[in-house]
Write a protein that binds this DNA or RNA. Sequence first.
DNA 1: ATACTAGACTCAGTTTTTCTAGGCCTAGAA
DNA 2: TTCTAGGCCTAGAAAAACTGAGTCTAGTAT
Lengths: 296, 296
Amino acid sequence: MSVTPPRPKGPPLNALRAFEAAARLGGFRLASAELNVTPGAIAQHVKFLEAWCGGLLFERLPVGVQLTPLGTSILPDFVAAFDALAAASHKLRMNAAPNRVSVTALPSIAQLWLGPLLPKIREELPGISISVTAMEAPPNLAREPFDLSIFFSSEADKSADLQLPQDELVPVCSPEIARRISTLADLQDLSCLSDQMWPGDWTEWLKSIDPRAGYSVSGPSYSLYGLAVNEALNGAGVLIGHLSLVNRYLLTGELVAPFPQRAKTAHRLTIYRSAQARSKIIRRLLDILKRFAKNL
Amino acid sequence: MSVTPPRPKGPPLNALRAFEAAARLGGFRLASAELNVTPGAIAQHVKFLEAWCGGLLFERLPVGVQLTPLGTSILPDFVAAFDALAAASHKLRMNAAPNRVSVTALPSIAQLWLGPLLPKIREELPGISISVTAMEAPPNLAREPFDLSIFFSSEADKSADLQLPQDELVPVCSPEIARRISTLADLQDLSCLSDQMWPGDWTEWLKSIDPRAGYSVSGPSYSLYGLAVNEALNGAGVLIGHLSLVNRYLLTGELVAPFPQRAKTAHRLTIYRSAQARSKIIRRLLDILKRFAKNL
DNA sequence: ATACTAGACTCAGTTTTTCTAGGCCTAGAA
DNA sequence: TTCTAGGCCTAGAAAAACTGAGTCTAGTAT
């Protein structure tokens, strides 16, 4: 008997968050990715929560888990509560520093599309402070503290705040290299640069030119598209270019396109803003991006 | 440069909770009481949160703190979010075990009023599992995981789920002791038991009998009213009885009231239920309590 | 004036919580 | 059959949270 008896405590907030993520995403592994922890951590949180409430939240299948009726019955409440919490946190951050904007983008987009625009943005919106975070997959804007996300999406989406037309593939290289190219066959003697994230780009472009010819090319691949572009600028070979990312260099002449044919891809550069990001600054920033995007 | 760059993280949930409590209650000390930690812990959480968002949440006054406009601007959002979270947690617990009811009450009420009713309740609601937590002050039912709270309130409140009439004071003692009492003056030769939480009870009762007579009594006091009642049953002296708590013993004759005069107090035994506790079980439990309360 | 008090701050050290690593297990796919 | 995806478990490590004790400030009481 302790002097101050331990009164029943509410559940740990982190366990609730782990459950919510696992239930919403349908698995511990996905939840662990969203929360940046290992799946074991999620498992422990959920187990604790199950002990706390005295009921099973998930059925454990041989592979994966499935929400029990109990879990299903309260999931919407938790989703709503954590949405509200995330929204409040976001609002707090914005109210504290209205001129701070945080953007997340695919690494290649951050470096090749957004990066060059930043000086012009700073010029038009003096006092603004933009932080850029590169990541591989678009985050859940309702949860992560970003104002804007810029990624490639394979679908048209009217709800996007800005969406460019379908991206196009076109080989690009330095002018010197271009002089040595006249036919498709010439490509086979050259380094054909590509990005590790889009390994099918060359094949896709070649197919769009002549579906039956069995052309194939080879060359180094890079985990960062920006690196590949740099190598192309340095004359390392022919890069399969994503027009939205390399057009700026075509316009300046630093890179040229030895073949005029372009292959439409499914990808559209797409910008979303967080539901909280309704401020005037964000609106003006979007306007600027829109304008620059047109000139690209 | 780490391989997986640390992406900006959302604020720690516990820091948000600390801020919410401090802001809602208007001070770190109060918040620390609600969350069962020391004030220093709250201070650290708030400080962290201020660093995270880059703005001051509280103005530090020489004594106490005051919300800044920034803090004020987001407080309602956080209150709503944590309310939703607590409601969801409560619902989870109830859905997991619908027959479990948790009650919080003043120690004296738990022991003397509720305790004797529990066997009868179990009889009428077989299968129900009631846990009782004694505490000194009524908790915030919107936050703490209780279904019912039973405390004395000094005001009439129509929103209460059950409220008894104003409590009355009346001296009580064992029949043996009563035989030795015939006038007020006899009290001065006897041990007059009282509760440490209500040290003014005897004075209040004496005043209601004869406001001018300077009667005063003395005797041991107890930190647990239940203990004082037991002592009275054992013939240790005359206890200043709260009718709602000792009437059961008057009815059985184990205790008697040597003086017929009763003094009305401001206190009413008051029962609230949590907003989440809308189940049939709780309703039936309240009905039973109501019925028993009438017969007391 | 002088002490006292309430409330908050800080910092070091400790306790508690949370996370990871790595091995195990199961069933469906190759 | 082997491989793989997804979870489970446990020990130990890492991080977060909390405490305790000493400071500080300005009202309040003496």
